[in-house]
């Protein structure tokens, strides 16, 4: 057995052990039912919830908005990073902003955004995109910084236009780093949307979770939380697989 495989087995064993331990603690009453449902119950509740379909609207709304925020953040973030890569002085000026950005409670701007865009989905998508975009910018810049100069010279020798150089040389070369940014952007889009739904909203998974919390409705709250975690882990696993393929192609593991 290769060490990698052995590690994976251990990892699975540990996770199974953790869930099993939680199950035992819940069933034996060390964790009471008002605090947490046993894991098997949460999974069953989730299946029932999805089959029942009463929350499908809320789930679809949240995931759709998060997807929109993600796409906006990726497109805007990558373009802005390429721009900053060329505008050295602007980038030096904005560096401290990027370093501080994630310490700022972005949700404080939510009321302002509601006034600007109305109480629809727009301010939520805006917050999600705002949160995600800087992770994309920072990681894309990181990738662009590492492009070997000789590849850019090769682009010039092949008479590529600025557009083609960005499209055919810079972005493919920075792709692994852009994917790292994308993984964070997935989480930040979800955080933005769900956080905004927690604070002020009339629907969506965040709203349903906090509503369930206030009504001690653990049969609804835990499955919804689990669903969000599953969605984000699934998307991240897919992106990580893709990243791995790219890295392997380059002889890096």
């Amino acid at each position: 057995m290769t060490p990698k495989k052995r590690a994976a087995l251990w990892r699975i064993a540990l996770l199974v052990g953790a869930v099993g331990g939680l199950e035992i603690l819940c069933l034996s009453g060390h964790i009471d039912r008002l605090t947490m449902q046993p894991p098997h119950r949460i999974v069953m509740d989730l299946v029932a919830l999805l089959a029942g379909g009463e929350l499908n609207g809320a789930i679809a709304k949240t995931l759709r908005n998060a997807a929109l925020a993600f796409v906006i953040a990726m497109v805007a973030g990558v373009s802005f990073a390429v721009l900053l890569h060329y505008l050295r002085s602007l980038r030096d000026m904005l560096d401290p902003v990027f370093a501080t950005y994630y310490a700022i409670p972005m949700f404080a701007f939510y009321p302002l955004l509601i006034v600007l865009f109305g109480l629809g989905d727009t301010p939520q998508i805006f917050i999600g995109a705002m949160l995600a975009v800087v992770a994309v910018i920072v990681n894309t810049l990181n990738g662009l910084d590492r492009i070997p100069r000789v590849l850019l010279k090769t682009a010039r020798v092949n008479q590529l236009s600025a557009w083609d150089t960005a499209r055919l040389v810079m972005l493919p070369c920075a792709a692994p780093h852009i994917l790292t940014g994308a993984k964070l952007a997935v989480a930040y889009s979800l955080i933005g949307i769900i956080g905004a739904e927690f604070i002020m909203s009339t629907g969506g998974m965040g709203y349903e979770i906090s509503f369930a919390y206030m009504n001690f409705d653990n049969a609804k709250m835990y499955p919804l939380i689990l669903l969000i975690l599953l969605v984000s882990i699934a998307i991240n696993t897919l992106l990580a697989k893709w990243e791995k393929i790219l890295m392997a192609r380059r002889g890096l593991s």
Binding site: P148, L151, T154, L246, R250
Partner: peptide, 13 residues
């Protein structure tokens, strides 16, 4: 045509 000292092959192609 130019060939450089550094490895200029595109690793993604």
């Amino acid at each position: 045509g130019v060939v450089f000292q550094e490895d200029a092959s595109f690793p993604w192609l």
